[in-house]
Simulated assay, not measured.
Amino acid sequence: MDNQTLQKRVEAISLESFGRPFRHQATFNSRLRTTGGRYRLADHNLDFNPRMAELPEFDQIIKHELVHYHLHLTHRGYQHRDADFKALLKAVGGSRYAPRLEGNRRSIKRWRYECSSGHIIERQRRFDTRRYRCGRCGGRLTLLNPQEN
Results as ranks from 00 to 15, higher is better:
H119D: 06
Y132H: 14
L101W: 05
E114D: 09
T74Q: 15
H44P: 03
Q4H: 10
A12C: 06
F85C: 04
G77W: 00
R51Y: 13
L144V: 09
A87C: 08
L55N: 02
K86E: 09
L55P: 00
N145G: 13
I13E: 00
Q25I: 14
E122R: 10
I108K: 15
K63Q: 06
L144A: 14
A91E: 14
F18K: 05
H24I: 05
Y39V: 04
K90E: 14
E102Y: 08
R20Q: 15
E65D: 05
F58L: 04
Q25V: 14
S95N: 13
Q25W: 10
V10Y: 04
R133N: 08
F22G: 00
C137D: 11
K109G: 09
L71W: 02
G118C: 07
K90H: 09
H68S: 05
Q7S: 07
Y78M: 10
D59C: 06
T129F: 08
Y78D: 15
N29M: 03
R110L: 15
E57V: 06
I108P: 02
Q124R: 15
G37K: 01
L15C: 12
Y39M: 05
S107N: 14
S30G: 09
K109N: 10
P146M: 05
E114Y: 02
M1P: 13
R81V: 10
H72K: 13
E65S: 02
M52P: 00
N29D: 14
R133T: 12
R106D: 10
H75R: 15
I120T: 12
R105N: 10
R140K: 15
L89K: 00
K63T: 02
H80A: 08
A42W: 12
A26H: 01
V67Y: 00
F28I: 03
Q4Y: 06
H72Y: 15
T74K: 14
E65P: 00
F22N: 00
D43E: 10
V10T: 06
E54Q: 14
F85K: 01
K8E: 11
Q147F: 15
I121C: 05
G94D: 01
I120W: 04
H119I: 01
S30H: 13
V67H: 01
T129A: 09
S14Q: 07
L66G: 00
G36I: 00
H44W: 10
F58D: 00
R131V: 13
L46Q: 01
H64Q: 02
R140E: 12
Q60P: 01
T5C: 10
L15I: 11
Y132D: 08
Y39N: 03
P21H: 11
A53C: 11
P56V: 12
Q7F: 04
R31I: 01
R106H: 13
R131C: 10
D43C: 10
G77Y: 01
A53K: 05
R81Y: 11
E102V: 12
R140Q: 15
I120C: 08
N3W: 03
I13Y: 01
C137P: 09
R112H: 11
G37A: 06
Y78P: 04
E114W: 02
D47R: 07
R81F: 11
D59Y: 07
R81M: 08
Q4T: 11
G118I: 01
T129D: 07
K8T: 13
L71C: 05
E65L: 02
H70P: 04
E65H: 03
G139M: 00
H72D: 15
D2I: 06
S30W: 13
R23F: 09
S17T: 09
D59K: 01
N29W: 03
A91G: 08
H70T: 07
R31K: 12
